[in-house]
Each structure stands twice: as structure tokens, then as C-alpha cells.
């Protein structure tokens, strides 16, 4: 099992990046071993449109089974859903805290986007 977390920096103590599509990077964490891989998302930070779709593809390609983030728009959600990746929104704090909340079952997956398109611009 692997969990992708939108992060503002590339370590487990980094704050969650509230924007999914335009997150600084994703930390793809194995919640059992705390091993993690850093997935760069720089190319999407300046994208005029479609950042959420691209980020969703990156996350899907990383092999993650779930995404923890704060805001997820409709196109990103549709893409993640097609990829079979569960989406958890409204997650705050550090990457470590988020994964711990996930492991403890304190957060629930969403069945829809929680913000409108282009909310992250």
C-alpha cells in the first residue's frame, strides 16, 4: 500500500500543500515502513490549465492507492477516480500527521471534488 500526500517540501515533516494540482510535490509514503519517494510536480505549478489532470496522472503512475490533500477539483477527482485512487480531502498538518491519521482510520475518502475547477490558481 502506498499513500500520496501533496506536500510543500520533500520530507515527512513538511506541511501538506493545500492545492492538489499545483502542489509543490507529492510524497508517496509506505505507511508501514515510512519509506517514501518524492514525486516532483514542478511542471504543473505554472500550467495554464489541466494541472489537476496531470497531477492525478503523476500520482497514479507512482502506484499510490490513495491521495491525501486539502483541496481537490473536479477534473483531478474524475481522473483519480478513473485510476482507482481513493481521495481524502480537507487533510491538514504535516505529511507524517496525515499518514498517521490515515493509518488510525481517522479520515474518510471523499466521493466528490470539494472545490470548483481552477480553485488552485
Amino acid at each position: 500500500m502506498k499513500i500520496a500526500v501533496s506536500a510543500q517540501d520533500s520530507n515527512l515533516d513538511a506541511k501538506i500543500d493545500p492545492r492538489f494540482g499545483r502542489a509543490q510535490c507529492f510524497l508517496v509514503v509506505d505507511p508501514d515502513t515510512w519509506d517514501f519517494e518524492i514525486v516532483d510536480n514542478k511542471q504543473n505549478l505554472q500550467a495554464p490549465a489541466g494541472a489537476g489532470i496531470q497531477a492525478a496522472q503523476i500520482v497514479s503512475d507512482s502506484g499510490a492507492d490513495a491521495v491525501l490533500t486539502f483541496n481537490c477539483g473536479p477534473k483531478a477527482f474524475r481522473t483519480l477516480e478513473a485510476a482507482g485512487v481513493k481521495v481524502y480531502v480537507g487533510v491538514e498538518g504535516t505529511v507524517k500527521e496525515a499518514v498517521e491519521a490515515f493509518k488510525a482510520g481517522k479520515i474518510k475518502p471523499t466521493d466528490s471534488a470539494n472545490v470548483d475547477a481552477h480553485s488552485g490558481i
Binding site: A47, Q54, A56, Q57, S60, K75, T79, A82, A83
Partner: peptide
């Protein structure tokens, strides 16, 4: 198709092709 699209109007993910017409 999704590789060539400069505007992310197509996404191929597992056995799905998603078309985002508005892009």
C-alpha cells in the same frame, strides 16, 4: 493522444480514456 495534447484535454489512465472537452 494524452502525450501529444498540450492542454491535458485527454487522460489515459488504466483502461479509461478521459476527455475534458472544455480544455
Amino acid at each position: 493522444c494524452s502525450e501529444v495534447c498540450q492542454f491535458s484535454a485527454l487522460a489515459v489512465i488504466r483502461k479509461n480514456v478521459l476527455v475534458f472537452q472544455e480544455l
